[in-house]
């Protein structure tokens, strides 16, 4: 499988002497859905900005789709990787839904006919075709995030970072965006997602979890393996998913649950047998 992102010995600090990121190295394969978790201040958001070259790294290298992340390659990188930020309002640039989806296309100097086609195609893909001429103050937070996603997809980007993209949404909006991500993944297995999140349950259903703590990679692996390390996670104050909690608590009571049971449906089936 090919690599989407390769990070090698990455260092970054905002202030001298305070290292925000220390010696970060990891690879992300194409088509992988990676959840990046950790406390506020663990360096997650900084890492995401370094990946998109919104901040330059101090030391170390990043490759996005084999292109090195550095100033000369900035415009090339913009054709590879996109990011959805936390605040839906502050990334809505156009005056209407269609203008906003078109913004990135305009920046790429794409001819108008092509733009109109792409805007319509991707607006309908994210379910916003009915709202093309609505202004942002007529939309919900979840709808604005959908528009942001359409803007990225329209550019043909295959690597998408979600920087706490659902944390300011109401539960309906959160479900909405989660569903959309799952649909997108199914439709195009080449899409690579890096989701920065506090939602442990979301991390649990990803392909891989990377946990950052104080600027370093604390754990990296399959959700099942990572969340098994309950004591280790507790030591840095992170919670574990509900299903893992139930399993480990039952283990303490001498009720063994087989390892292959990974969600509440399976567990309820097992218990009712």
């Amino acid at each position: 499988m090919k690599e989407a992102i390769r990070v090698e010995h990455l260092y970054f600090s905002y202030e001298k002497g305070v290292e925000t990121l220390k010696d970060i190295s990891f690879n992300v394969n194409k088509g992988e859905y990676v959840a990046l978790i950790g406390h506020n201040g663990s360096g997650k958001s900084t890492l995401s900005k370094l990946l998109c070259y919104l901040l330059p790294a101090d030391k170390g290298q990043i490759f996005v789709d084999d292109i090195e992340v550095k100033e000369e390659n900035e415009s090339l990188l913009r054709k590879k990787i996109g990011i959805v930020f936390q605040n839906p309002d502050n990334q809505f640039i156009g005056s209407t839904v269609e203008d906003d989806i078109a913004f990135g296309l305009e920046n790429r100097n794409i001819p108008r006919e092509e733009m109109v086609r792409l805007v319509h195609e991707f607006a309908s893909k994210v379910g916003m075709i009915k709202y093309l001429n609505k202004s942002p103050d007529e939309l919900s937070g979840g709808q604005k995030q959908r528009v942001a996603i359409a803007g990225i997809l329209a550019l043909g980007l295959k690597i998408i970072i979600f920087d706490e993209a659902t944390s300011m949404l109401d539960p309906e909006g959160v479900e909405d965006i989660k569903k959309l991500i799952m649909e997108m993944k199914k439709e195009d297995p080449e899409l690579t997602f890096i989701s920065i999140t506090h939602d442990i349950e979301e991390a649990y259903i990803s392909d891989r979890v990377i946990i950052l703590n104080k600027g370093e990679i604390f754990l990296d692996g399959k959700p099942n393996e990572v969340f098994q390390k309950e004591d280790l996670l507790k030591s840095i104050g992170l919670d574990i998913p509900f299903i893992m909690k139930v399993k480990s608590s039952l283990k303490d009571k001498n009720v063994q649950i087989p390892n292959e049971i990974n969600n509440i449906e399976e567990l309820s089936d097992y218990l009712c047998k």
């Binding site: 919104l54 996109g82 913004f103 990135g104 305009e106 920046n107 100097n109 733009m115």
Partner: peptide
């Protein structure tokens, strides 16, 4: 940041949707 991430260059050549 959002504009930068979406490839906006103030003096670059841009096409126009409208």
């Amino acid at each position: 940041l959002a504009m930068n991430a979406r490839g906006y260059e103030p003096y670059g050549k841009r096409s126009s949707y409208r």
